[in-house]
Design a protein around this nucleic acid. Structure first.
Length: 935
RNA sequence: GCCCAGGUGGCGGAAUUGGUAGACGCGUUGGUCUCAAACACCAAUGGUAGCAAUACCGUGCCGGUUCGACUCCGGCCCUGGGUACCA
């Protein structure tokens, strides 16, 4: 009988499902283990080969831990709100809910073939009203909270009212809007309830404020940065401008410090923590006030280097800064306005990355240095960002590279203020010196101080003079929470006299209304503006924006613990049992998005007593991305229908070529394309296209390794791989491909080897009779057999304990090969082999396990432990090096003392030859490693 | 630009603490089995020189630390991810 996965795999998948093998209940007698995957967005293209990578790893860990006696929570669900379904709705008119349901059905169908041990009774879908009811509920709790810096915790808004009633707000140390006025208890108590409410809005952790967005007037909508290419919309190529709009935001900045220190308590990859730290970007420095000459206006800038205050030779404000018009002189007005208009269309990313393109304009105004009293020019330049710090920088070209480039370009003065700044032959500053190491020069009373002392000195003086204060600044910005979309959670808020109010908790969920079209309205309102009667109590307009994609994904992991609870988002007793996610697996692309927002919400829910932990993910592994190998062809810009073979690229004007990603299904070889496949693939683009092939008759494309995704048409369907081989093969192969954390392009080159391994394992159980039927023997295993299996158990266990998922496949292969060589068919040995292979290849091992006579699932059996007694060696073969270069080996008993080993080594022929009669300088013996003779 | 990661044979990768570089698999070459194929099995396989023993070179590039460096340090180059409204 041969290994026939087509027969085995569906059989056992059905068995597991029917017998509820993976159903999970709280069991206080067992330790728990929560293994979680980042849930997928159910795209229309279905599962791609990257999804099963992380899912397989967590599945292996879940099965392994289950076999070690843990109670496993291993659920799956769908992040089912999102842009693609909405875009599909705009294009076809099909309701996103319908598209999403179809896609989810397809995903589940595909997932079912991979043999994962998910407990599907706990499935969640973020677009399900029974789920988003609780997303809205959490939103309300955040709205009804404020952040108290005194104890660094979110508290109920009632407690803030209580403080105001007693003491006003002068003693309150809270996260709030900048324009919050001060008031006493008397003043507060004199306010009307409405006025009090209005003031409370400045403290609540969600609030409405102006935020800058990418506005596309032609499409009447806001675009994601992703949808903007070179300043125009990706769809249609319409101009995009940056515009301020009223948006809901969340005060994540209040949690900046806790999100920073919380990282120290979790087992995440250090680079990822580093990314989050940098994203939060805590920096110490000062805010300095510069008076504008001839105006009653002060410009405040944040700087991390107040010590360089004497090096300030000009000042720069962001083009969006609200004081730009006021501070521009009549002569400079036209130039400044033109510049501001130009800067409006450049994205923040462009502005930061194109450092070589220096641009800016003089306002005509001057500011006065608060320390030196010097008068310097005030400029506007787009390398200064409105959103960071105060949107104004004091430029120190001697110490900052961007300031330096700017000063060089516009011939502004450059003063070196730190000793050791490089000068050119004319004695002018040759390059900026950004280091904090050195002694101050050209800096008045600061001269001779170290930078660090000067920083303190300047802050002290500024605070005494009232011209500045020491300040901690964060790069992190509050999180914009509004999206001008249809397919997202409605915000459970309505407006009365322009003031936002929450609906009542018992009125949740606020379900998405039906609308006729999914586009924005003619006057630029979000799609919900089309919903008829979209009002609260028939009179107050509901919020028209919806929540962002990260809302649902910021708490879904808690819902799995109590997925069907209709009265609470998750019962606290249940969340106490399951607690933190023990192993969370997902891609690095979420490093600062999802993984920061989830931490934020968890910290919040913890503060308010809704969750028993603040850090949601105890251990995290960032799986690498399985990249696609895209196929790219070239179209001539001036002839929309003409495509040229990639090899002729050089013959054309590069500006005239447009790269087009085409489906990898059209590939006929490494880099050749069959144009006929393209004609049927996308008739609207290629039906009548002209393809200019090479003289050899081939039409070449360019291949490029990049993210696998819909837009690149480079995705591979895992089900096709299962059909060609088996689910067990795919699982093992995805692990075998390399370290989980590493990104790698998908390539099926080596998959045969893994498939062969499974066949070999199968044959191991069918090798002892002529019919090839299943047969094992009861004989006692000999030492060689014991050694093979115990070596494998040890290696595999050690590797899994350190979350190395790739090397165990090799270990299993070696074990099967060695047992085959030994012609081992001992029941005791083969049973252990099945047990250790079960997490990787659940179907084949389950089948063989049943054939061995077991009546319960192998996944409910106990994982074997290795016995050291079979692995003990009596001697060790040392590699012997001369001056670090390996020359020979020497085998000595393990317990031999170092002096005796040295004697043996020196007596060795090869060593003697190298020594040429002279004694060695040194002999280094590292036990069980190496002997190195230095001559 | 900024933040993070990676770079090892023809290919995917291994080397767990600074200690035999290339485990395991693919591919290639030669062979066994077969009427033939498929399957399977055996052998070789980093490069150069050599019949061989062996020698020299070799972990992106340049330099350093060390008895010894894929591993640690400094400087570059290239590739991938993120960069706040893709998910």
């Amino acid at each position: 009988m041969v290994y026939d996965p087509k027969q085995i795999e569906p059989k056992w998948q059905e068995y597991w499902q029917k017998n509820d093998v993976y159903k999970t209940e709280i069991d206080h007698s067992k330790p728990k283990y929560y293994a979680l995957d980042m849930f997928p967005y159910p795209s229309g293209k279905g599962l791609h080969i990257g999804h099963p990578l992380g899912y397989t790893a967590s599945d292996i860990m879940a099965r392994y831990k289950r076999m070690q006696g843990f109670n496993i929570l291993h659920p799956m669900g769908f992040d089912s709100f999102g842009l693609p379904a909405e875009q599909h709705a705009i294009d076809t008119g099909q309701h996103p809910a319908v598209t999403t349901a179809e896609n989810i059905a397809n995903f589940k169908q595909q997932l079912s073939k991979l043999g994962f041990c998910f407990d599907w009774d706990r499935e969640v879908q973020t677009s399900d009203p029974q789920f988003y009811k609780w997303t809205q509920w959490i939103f309300m709790q955040i709205f009804n909270s404020w952040f108290n810096y005194d104890n660094n915790k979110a508290e109920s808004i009632e407690s803030l009212y209580a403080i105001f009633t007693k003491a006003g707000n002068t003693q309150v140390n809270a996260a709030c809007d900048e324009d919050t006025p001060s008031f006493t208890a008397e003043q507060w108590n004199a306010y009307s309830a409405d006025e009090q409410y209005k003031i409370s809005l400045k403290y609540r952790l969600t609030y409405v404020a102006d935020s800058v967005v990418n506005w596309c007037p032609a499409l009447g909508t806001v675009l994601a940065n992703d949808e903007v290419k070179d300043g125009v919309s990706e769809r249609g190529g319409h101009p995009v401008e940056r515009k301020k709009m009223k948006q809901w935001s969340m005060r994540i900045t209040a949690y900046a410090d806790r999100l920073l220190t919380g990282l120290d308590r979790i087992d995440w990859p250090e680079p990822l923590k580093e990314m989050q730290r940098n994203w939060i970007g805590k920096s110490h420095g000062a805010e300095m006030d510069f008076k504008v000459d001839g105006h009653e206006v002060t410009l405040t800038c944040f700087t991390t280097r107040p010590d360089t205050i004497y090096g300030v030779t000009f000042m720069v404000m962001a083009p969006e800064h609200e004081l730009v018009p006021q501070l521009t002189t009549a002569e400079q007005k036209a130039e400044v306005e033109a510049y501001v208009e130009m800067a409006k269309n450049r994205s923040e990313r462009e502005r930061q990355s194109e450092v070589k393109k220096v641009s800016g304009v003089f306002t005509g105004s001057y500011v006065i240095n608060p320390i030196s009293g010097e008068k310097v020019q005030l400029w506007v330049a787009d390398y200064v960002l409105a959103g960071y710090g105060t949107g104004v920088v004091m430029a120190v070209p001697g110490g900052d590279e961007r300031d330096f480039r700017f000063a060089k370009h516009y011939q502004l003065p450059i003063t070196p203020v730190v000793e050791g700044t490089k000068l050119d032959e004319n004695g002018e500053v040759a390059e900026a010196n950004p280091t904090k190491e050195g002694i101050m020069i050209n800096s008045g009373y600061l001269n001779g101080m170290t930078c660090k002392d000067a920083i303190q000195a300047v802050i002290k003086k500024a605070e005494e003079d009232g011209t500045g204060t020491g300040k901690v600044n964060f790069r992190l910005r509050d999180a914009v929470f509004s999206r001008q979309r249809y397919w997202g959670e409605p915000v459970p808020a309505y407006f009365k006299d322009g003031i936002p109010y929450m609906i009542k908790e018992e009125e949740l969920p606020l379900t998405l209304p039906e609308i006729s079209e999914y586009k924005p309205t003619a006057d630029g309102d979000p799609p919900l503006g089309r919903a008829e009667g979209w009002t609260y109590q028939d009179q107050y307009a509901y919020e028209l924006t919806t929540m962002p994609g990260w809302a649902g994904s910021s708490w879904y992991f808690a819902r799995y613990m109590d997925a069907n609870n209709a009265n609470e988002f998750a019962n606290i007793e249940k969340t106490k049992y399951w607690n933190q996610v023990d192993l969370y697996i997902g891609g690095t692309e979420h490093a600062v998005g999802h993984l920061l927002y989830s931490r934020f919400w968890s910290h919040f829910l913890f503060d308010r007593g809704f969750l028993p932990y603040d850090e949601p993910f105890k251990k995290l592994i960032n799986q690498g991305m399985i990249q696609g190998n895209s196929a790219i062809i070239y179209r001539l810009k001036d002839q929309s229908n003409k495509y040229i073979s990639a090899k002729q690229k050089g013959d054309y004007d590069q500006e005239n070529l447009i790269e087009i990603h085409v489906t990898v299904a059209a590939l006929t070889g490494e880099d050749t394309i069959d144009p006929e496949v393209l004609r049927t693939w996308k008739p609207e683009d290629f039906k009548d296209a002209e393809f200019v092939a090479d003289p050899d008759g081939n039409f070449y494309c360019t291949r490029r390794i990049e993210k696998m995704g819909k837009r690149y048409h480079n995705a591979i369907d895992p089900v096709s791989v299962i059909n060609d081989f088996s689910a067990d093969t795919l699982r093992c192969y995805e692990m075998f491909l390399g370290p989980l954390e590493q990104s790698k392009p998908w390539d099926t080159k080596g998959i045969d080897g893994v498939h062969k391994f499974l066949r070999k394992m199968w044959r191991l159980f069918h090798q002892f009779n002529d019919q090839g039927e299943f047969e094992t023997s009861d004989g006692t295993p000999d030492d060689a057999e014991q050694k093979v299996i115990h070596k494998a158990i040890k290696r595999l266990t050690e590797d899994l304990e350190r979350f190395a998922f790739n090397t165990p496949v090799s270990t299993l292969m070696i074990c099967v090969n060695e047992l085959t060589d030994l012609k081992c068919n001992k029941h005791e040995v083969l049973e252990k082999l099945l047990l250790i292979a079960a997490p990787y290849a659940p179907h084949i091992t389950e089948d063989l396990w049943a054939k061995m006579g077991h009546i319960t699932s192998i996944h409910q059996a106990t994982f074997p432990k290795h016995d050291e007694k079979y692995l003990q060696e009596s001697s060790f073969e040392y590699p012997v090096s001369i001056n670090g270069k390996k020359r020979t080996t020497i085998k000595v008993p393990l317990d031999m003392p170092k002096e005796d080993i040295e004697r043996q080594v020196l007596a060795n022929d090869v060593v003697q030859k190298w020594l040429e009669g002279k004694p060695p300088k040194k002999v280094i013996i590292v036990p069980k490693r190496i002997v190195n003779v230095v001559i």
